[in-house]
Design a binder for these strands. Sequence first.
DNA 1: AAAAAAG
Length: 482
Amino acid sequence: MSYFTELGLAKPILRALEAKGYNDPTPIQRQAIPALLEGRDLLGIAQTGTGKTAAFSLPSLHRLAANPKARTPRGCRMLVLSPTRELAAQIADNMVGYAKYLNLGVQTVFGGVPVGKQISALGRGTDILVATPGRLLDLIEQRALVLDHVEIFVLDEADQMMDLGFIKPLTRIAGLLPKQRQSLFFSATMPNEIAQLGKRFITDPVKVEVAPQSTTAEKVAQYVTHVDQKEKQALLTISLKKGLESGDIESCLVFTRTKHGADRVVKHLIAAGIEAAAIHGNKSQAQRTRALDGFREGRVPVLVATDIAARGIDVPGVSAVFNFELPNVPEQYVHRIGRTARAGKGGMAISYCAGDEKTYLRDIVRLTGVQPIAAPLPANFLEQAARLPKPSAKQLGAEHSDDNRNGGSNRRSRQAESRNRGPRRHPDVAVRPKGARPAAASAEGTARSGEARPAGGQNTGQNRNRNRRRGGGGGRPQAALA
DNA sequence: AAAAAAG
């Protein structure tokens, strides 16, 4: 047991933590903060929902405040990169909170919103800049931003930032940073070959690995239902109706594999009288923000998302995550189900696995070392499914109006909060099937210790390469750099 | 093959 007060952080930071009611640091915070205060580079690996944002924010704020400098026009002293706009906004929000009693400025830049305000805000310079890569480079090209004065560089979701889709812009950005700087990488997942690739951006890092990379959150109860693809929608609708009505589910995230799939699921749910909104990269930024805000504030209990929402998003009331389709990159599963069971709370993850997704499931089990508990279809499933209202062609065809907010009349109650303490029981599972390993930690121990992994559970490069190669996605990032 | 990120 230890307290933030013992970690050497400045008084104004401790005051901000106190205001938030944070007293004891999590393991990643306890281990990372002292090294970061010393100015070391660091690779931080810890499970989802264990406070990685604070782990890099608090010591960085301390160091910036301890060495005050005048703001350089169009410059910043700390740069934080995020893979999505929503995560960038959330990180900045958190940092503003932690910096409440410090004289440090926080700015955010990302695409999808007018650039003018961002340019003028940067003109005066800022201490901390949180950004997504595309808009950041745009602003640099427009000479609205220079990175010459960056002292601290943070890659959140570092493995994703160094993966295929991001490595090019990231390499350009890193090339513009001063050589003399502190670099910090954080994630819950870090495939070996990506960690190797990362060495070019970081110098002699301290490695803080609270749990083996890709360890799932401790208190998430994991289930899998084997179901035909064409029956998934009916199963989801039935399960959500029951879960939301009974209060077993307070609010939940549903992940689909495609943007179109997310829209389709939302239309079906709305036709069945379930309030839901979609968030994905084909929506306007205004639509994205509205969907996430509605979900955060409890007006919309069901958010249907692509992997845009898989990483980092922190919404305290989320009691369940549904994988309507399994991710083909197994690390994404760890992040998706990490949207629940955060900050010591419990949660459940329910994955729908069609016949052609069994290889994905196998890869996920191999990576996480956890075998989700098989949850059968409800006994009268086909009967219930037949009674479901079918959305009309018009409902399915029409672009769904975004104006499905309803002035708070359907505000979800907070009474389910007290039930949100331990692993949850699947609504349709009374008894754990024989022979299945528990998928979530119980009081006796953690779900996953090294030796508890199934045979072949080590993350060999061979396994990973096979995982990644599936679908012809090409080689590793090295290929992109060659 | 898909997702994210500039427009």
